[in-house]
Amino acid sequence: MSKVTMTVNGRKMAAEVEGRTLLSGFLREGLELTGTHVGCDTSQCGACVVLVNGQAVKSCTAFAADLEGAEVTTVEGMANPDGSLGNIQQAFQDYHGLQCGYCTPGMVMSTAALLADNPKPTEEEVRHYLEGNICRCTGYQNIVRAVMAASGQDVGALAAE
């Protein structure tokens, strides 16, 4: 066991980890930040996506011990300072981009990474970018709408072909 310290959602936080502890486990069990979800064991579902030093990372693929000193943002850090829903979160609610909510933290964090890179993505780009995030509930259409809306684009135009 060794102690690992990271800045998580702007606060310095520490927990004891084994060498094999994944970032997802460090967040969920070590720091009790259970917003980050685990949906698979082959790094394919994206439920666990967080931002590490600004980059989208599947937290089930990274060892916590390798990330000493990293800046991590999780879904718990996405609300506005006054506690109201942040821009991306609000768009997901407005456009019914979630049902059971299990994939949602990963979707929100992937969206944050996408919009940081590409502030006005096309529908095609959104769909392609979200390939690494599986949602079993929504059929994705409303997630895509939410992402487009969060980027300030008109979503009425989302239609066939």
Partner: peptide, 21 residues
């Protein structure tokens, strides 16, 4: 009506069984 449950799911405050320790 927008879903009231979304607020907790979108902020990481959902309570799923695996969140219970």
């Amino acid at each position: 009506t927008k879903r009231r449950e979304d607020t907790r799911f979108l902020t990481g405050n959902g309570k799923y069984t695996d969140d219970i320790n």
